[in-house]
Computed example of a mutant assay.
Amino acid sequence: MVHLVQPEPAKPARLKPGERRAQILRVLAAMLEDPRGERVTTAALAARLQLSEAALYRHFASKAQMLEALIQQAEEQLLAQAEQIAGLAQPAEERAQRLMLALLRFGEAQPGLARVLVGDALVGEHERLAQRVEQLFQRLEATQRHWLREGDLDSAQPGADAQGRAAVLMGFAQGRLLRFVRSGFKRAPTENLEQWRRWLPG
């Protein structure tokens, strides 16, 4: 009888440090997309990556640092979109609403990061993470406020207080993202948005 020798399973390819960091963040974001909203542990993350927890800590000092890197990714993408919108030849109100819509679409496309932005994935984590998210929302709202104030200066009939209008837009976006997360990602942030936009500043 001939015994066939089974080949050894291929070992995962070695990744460069930067590539491994990016992979860790991708997998963490994917695990946060679980609609059950369960807390992701470093042990579960390491198992999904087929790494030891010690290997994770060679790239990130803590889970908090991983979550902060995800927040930074969101910040970079959203602020880049804000910069693009700022360059559009559109009325200030339209640009402010467009930035709100960009935030909603960002969360809809990346449910794991939506959980981070609404704080659901930050429960029990270091308070600086929630502060970092709040700073991001404040920057987006400040951008909208700046545009709306400029628009009022250019208008013969200035509208309501720019600060209040910006606060309404950002509060609406945050509420929509929170509903999206709490529904297990079933109720899209952009659902029936056109019906609501007529009630929003702009």
Rank of each mutant, 00 (worst) to 15 (best):
V116L: 04
L117R: 00
V118S: 04
V118N: 05
G119V: 07
D120G: 00
D120K: 08
A121Q: 01
V123L: 12
V123T: 14
V123W: 10
V123S: 08
G124C: 01
G124Y: 06
E125L: 05
E125H: 04
H126Q: 15
E127I: 14
E127P: 10
R128L: 11
R128E: 11
L129G: 05
L129F: 02
L129D: 03
A130S: 11
Q131M: 11
E134F: 01
Q135D: 09
L136M: 02
L136D: 02
F137E: 08
F137M: 10
F137C: 09
Q138G: 14
Q138W: 09
Q138H: 12
R139T: 10
R139P: 05
L140A: 03
E141W: 01
A142K: 08
T143S: 11
T143N: 05
R145E: 14
H146E: 14
H146N: 12
H146C: 11
R149S: 13
R149G: 09
R149L: 13
E150L: 15
E150C: 14
G151I: 04
G151D: 06
L153E: 11
S155Q: 04
A156S: 12
A156T: 13
A156R: 13
A156G: 06
Q157C: 08
Q157P: 00
P158N: 08
P158F: 07
G159H: 06
A160S: 15
A160N: 10
A160W: 04
Q163S: 12
Q163D: 12
Q163K: 09
G164A: 08
G164Q: 07
A166T: 05
A166H: 00
A167F: 01
A167M: 00
A167Q: 07
V168F: 00
V168D: 03
L169W: 00
M170K: 06
F172I: 01
A173W: 00
A173F: 00
G175P: 03
G175C: 05
R176N: 04
R176P: 00
L178G: 09
R179S: 13
F180T: 10
V181D: 00
V181H: 01
V181G: 00
V181Q: 04
V181W: 02
R182I: 02
R182K: 13
R182E: 11
G184V: 11
F185K: 05
F185C: 08
K186V: 15
R187C: 08
T190K: 08
E191H: 14
N192A: 15
N192C: 11
E194D: 15
Q195H: 12
Q195N: 08
Q195Y: 15
W196D: 10
W196F: 15
R197T: 15
R197C: 10
R197I: 13
R197K: 14
R198T: 12
R198W: 10
W199I: 03
W199S: 14
P201T: 06
G202E: 01
